[in-house]
């Protein structure tokens, strides 16, 4: 028995790579695919070993296709009618809110509740209320209330609604360096209830952020 031709063996190996697609006519419908299919057919004519290989692949594929035609017990027209009804009862015939109830399941609600509690606990732990920079805790600015505003106007009295309590009259105590004081709306105007002014310690000290001359000016104004 003569030794197999190495070039022939290389060709067989190359063919083996093509066969799985060749048996299903999947080498491609373009020119290159057609050329590869023609080459495989030519090779198979003269190679019994590769023909066996191709035959095994075709047998396996045939069994798969045969399997696809089999119908299990219980799968008949009645089965599909039942499936149709099931689908419609879950979709177009579902009671209003049914789909929403499905989406917001008990599990999801529990998860959301747990996440909310965690966030609340985390926020409670992070925010230290005792050191918060409350507007009412901050020492008031005591400036000359009769001094003109940077824009030239005057507003000794400001009507405002505090965040708690009834409507009261608040008095503008002044500005710092001709501009706004502090940060944000709470810092622009340092307002105090008129009745509270007597109890504020900074009234006597002249405020933490302003000088004594300004405090004197405010006292004269009142």
């Amino acid at each position: 028995m003569s030794a197999p031709d190495p070039s022939r063996l290389a060709e067989c190996e190359r063919l083996c790579a093509e066969l799985p697609l060749f048996v299903g006519d999947d080498l491609g419908r373009d020119v290159a695919g057609a050329e590869r299919a023609r080459w495989v057919r030519e090779h198979l004519k003269g190679c019994a070993r590769c023909r066996r290989h191709a035959s095994a692949l075709q047998q396996a594929r045939k069994a798969l296709q045969q399997f696809g035609r089999a119908t299990p017990d219980g799968v008949d027209e009645e089965f599909f009618t039942d499936l149709h009804e099931r689908v419609l009862s879950e979709t177009v015939h579902a009671p209003i809110g049914g789909a929403w109830r499905d989406r917001v399941s008990i599990g999801r609600l529990s998860g959301l509740a747990a996440a909310a509690m965690l966030l609340f606990a985390l926020g409670f732990w992070l925010v230290d209320l005792s050191t918060g920079d409350s507007v009412l805790r901050r020492p008031p600015l005591v400036l000359d209330a009769s001094a003109p505003r940077p824009d030239g106007g005057r507003d000794d009295l400001v009507r405002a609604v505090p965040y708690a309590g009834g409507r009261v009259e608040l008095k503008l105590l002044g500005y710092q360096d001709g501009g706004a004081v502090g940060q944000g709306m709470a810092g622009r105007l340092d307002l105090r209830l008129l009745g509270d002014e007597a109890r504020l310690p900074s009234r006597q000290t002249g405020g933490a952020t302003t000088g004594g001359a300004a405090a004197d000016g405010a006292a004269q104004h009142r």
């Binding site: 799985p20 697609l21 299903g24 095994a56 069994a63």
Partner: peptide
């Protein structure tokens, strides 16, 4: 898709045989 088909048929044939 072609590679998976190629590989799938090969593997199927091996197990089948």
């Amino acid at each position: 898709a072609r590679w998976r088909l190629h590989r799938g048929r090969q593997v199927f044939r091996e197990y089948w045989e």
